[in-house]
């Protein structure tokens, strides 16, 4: 095998035999068991599953915040070691620092990766990204003065402004009302798809919203709970750029969605038969 081929086959993120055990009140609790999947360069991968399936644990392992994990994780072929400048993160809450204005939050993020820029240049760059997420007029507001949706826009702007190769998003739209969630999904889709001139970022996106996962992803990793294991890894067959309205009307979409729902409900049905009921 030639070197060039070998290089091409190195995935952006590779998770092999990932197992996470928590010790809780003298009892061992397995959050994730033998999870395997890859994220290729420029691939958008969603991780879905019901609450308690360990999807957020999986993301904190990838973020480098949770370190007591067994298994092997590589980023561009190198073993993962703590947090890293090649990964940008958007949390469900409190990605932003409440004591900094929106533009200072973004400029602060930029400052951590671009030491070459002056303060003025960082603030200018922050302003261009605020424009991109539709917050041009809100640069001087504090996070507490913004709605939840606007805070998530700003958090996305910061992650994008830092221009990391990888984006990790932990249920970023779960706390947003249904109408604004759709707006934010489309904004993210547009920003991630870009104009085709720049390489797309590799994304790991955690959600419990099936439609959100289908609209955004190239590939969906379905987790089942207790312990969290991969039930199936499904490539999303729909072409890009995607349009929500036309996409949801196709019979293929309905069929694909019902397959995912089936995986979900199977999981819940098994748990009803078992000792725990989560609905």
């Amino acid at each position: 095998m030639s070197a060039a081929v070998a290089l091409q086959t190195v995935p952006k993120i590779e998770v092999k035999h990932l197992t996470v055990n928590y010790a809780e009140k003298n009892r061992m609790f397995t959050a994730l068991r033998d999870v395997n999947f890859t994220v290729e360069e420029g691939e958008f991968v969603s991780v879905i599953g019901a609450s308690g399936c360990g999807k957020s644990t999986l993301l904190s392992v990838l973020e480098g915040l949770y370190k007591q994990a067994d298994g092997e994780i590589t980023i561009s072929g190198k073993p993962l070691d703590g947090t890293g400048k090649e990964r940008g993160v958007v949390f469900q809450h409190y990605s932003l620092f409440p004591w900094m204005t929106t533009r200072k939050n973004i400029a602060f993020g930029i400052a951590q990766v671009r030491k070459d820029l002056t303060k003025k240049q960082r603030l200018e760059l922050a302003d261009t990204f605020l424009e991109k997420v539709g917050l041009g007029e809100f640069g001087n507001k504090y996070p507490s003065q913004l709605s939840g949706g606007m805070q998530q826009r700003a958090a996305i702007a910061r992650a994008l402004a830092m221009d990391t190769e990888i984006l990790l998003m932990d249920e970023p739209f779960s706390a947003i009302d249904a109408k604004n969630r759709i707006v934010l999904q489309e904004l993210l889709l547009k920003l991630w798809e870009g104009d085709g001139k720049e390489p797309r970022k590799s994304v790991v996106f955690v959600t419990h919203d099936i439609d959100e996962a289908i609209l955004l992803s190239d590939k969906i990793v379905v987790l089942t709970a207790h312990p969290g294991t991969v039930a199936e890894i499904i490539p999303v067959p729909f072409a890009r750029p995607r349009d929500r309205k036309t996409l949801v009307q196709t019979p293929e979409y309905a069929e694909f969605r019902s397959h995912l729902l089936h995986l979900f409900y199977n999981d819940i049905a098994e748990r009803i038969g078992g000792e725990e009921v989560v609905l």
């Binding site: 904190s60 973020e63 480098g64 915040l65 947090t83 890293g84 400048k85 990964r87 940008g88 993160v89 949390f91 809450h93 409190y94 990605s95 932003l96 620092f97 409440p98 602060f108 993020g109 951590q112 990766v113 830092m162 990790l168």
Partner: peptide
């Protein structure tokens, strides 16, 4: 200090 704030700072590699 809220652990979420600390996590947010840690992932920025400050």
């Amino acid at each position: 200090v809220d652990s979420k704030i600390l996590d947010s700072a840690k992932v920025l590699n400050v």
